[in-house]
Design a binder for these strands. Sequence first.
DNA 1: CGCAAACTTGATGTTGCTCAAGCTAGGTGG
DNA 2: CCACCTAGCTTGAGCAACATCAAGTTTGCG
Lengths: 234, 234
Amino acid sequence: MYAQAVSTTAANTDPASHGVCRGPGLRAVNHVAAVSSLQTKAPGETLFSEGDETDCVFEVVRGMLRLYKLLPDGRRQITGFLSAGHLLGFAPEGVCIYTAEAITEVTLCRYKRTTFERLIDEVPGFAKRLLTAASHELRAAQDQMLLLGRKTATEKVASFLLLIAGQQGGDRVDVPMTRSDIADHLGLTVETVCRTITRLKQDRVIELLTPSRIKIVDRGQLEELAVGEGDTGF
Amino acid sequence: MYAQAVSTTAANTDPASHGVCRGPGLRAVNHVAAVSSLQTKAPGETLFSEGDETDCVFEVVRGMLRLYKLLPDGRRQITGFLSAGHLLGFAPEGVCIYTAEAITEVTLCRYKRTTFERLIDEVPGFAKRLLTAASHELRAAQDQMLLLGRKTATEKVASFLLLIAGQQGGDRVDVPMTRSDIADHLGLTVETVCRTITRLKQDRVIELLTPSRIKIVDRGQLEELAVGEGDTGF
DNA sequence: CGCAAACTTGATGTTGCTCAAGCTAGGTGG
DNA sequence: CCACCTAGCTTGAGCAACATCAAGTTTGCG
């Protein structure tokens, strides 16, 4: 019940942040560690699928997940990438509304939903924490809607790179997800993502150290491109 | 703080629902009416703008609002339409992350954020209510991401019509928003929305009683079209 | 009844998709 | 250790869906 995918720490004032947080996770909260259990998933493994009935809430302790929804013909929309500190729960009806899969090796902390609900009542400030986290998720979702509905391919890719760079705090960005994952998150095709990255590289805005390791060369330019102020040939 | 746009009642099991609820609003909750004040907005009036600093939380009592975000060049994404029973608050940082405007005449109930926070601590079950509501909003946001990122124009329009029809519970749907609003919600242009509606009309899936009053003639067909199973000429 | 905003329709244009083909890298087994 | 093998990445050519630009038409209100 409750939040479907929320971060578990309050502080994150970075406007570009997609719901990420790097403080201590829920497990660090009083009373919580005692009622949880740890588990691990290998890359590609499914945590649960859209439509599954479950009664668990998970917290990501380490690694990265993708959450996605599918259309009947297989079109996929990745609604978010979750890293350490994020919670993923379930619809109030107890039916999962998205599939969750490990991208990297992932360590998770699992709670029974009933236990989780009890914590809300018993642990002071816990509910507020969750509400704040949910609020951040909602904002991230709205940013993503603006991206999906109104941004061009270049703007989408630039926004995405800045977002994950912001999470990692540096100009060398590690990209654990595939181009296909990125495409399905941005509402593009793999080919368009590739071509766009190539153009950014050619324009000396970024460098590709390896396909999954990107260096941001001109952050200012990238930021302009992300909101459509980049009329320098794009 | 807390939820940015949440409905205030728990029950809504309709999977197509975009966070709407028709139970009693927050104002009906114990203790709450006493600390709130009512106000009214005319169609087109702005409640607050993206970037504004505020310390209020609103509940929609009557009428409909649009929430949107803008890009620097004016491109607009409407992240949601809010009707009676919905809450709209603010980013935890106290800065609005979207603009809220009245579509119809709107009656609102306003709370100080500090008051609102106190209620979370003092009123039993209030926090859980808000969390459930936030969870529904998050689900609606994820559905919208799937729509924006992966659906075709026809699928988008069909999904939208079913969504507002679901909120109104009948086959005659009142569409208070303009075509331009619909376009900016679905990530399309006005012209594409018009043409798509025209085609649905020609195919006897819907009828246009007036431009803002639509009758669903073949709901089954519309539902198939909404998820991409409509290979009947579309 | 007139006016302005909203809606509709048509002709043309462009972005990003599709289909097709190579390329690269990292992991595995001989 | 190296060479193969496969998943993922990249690039190209052509195309289609939707956008843009440009008129008209309807609607509802003053």
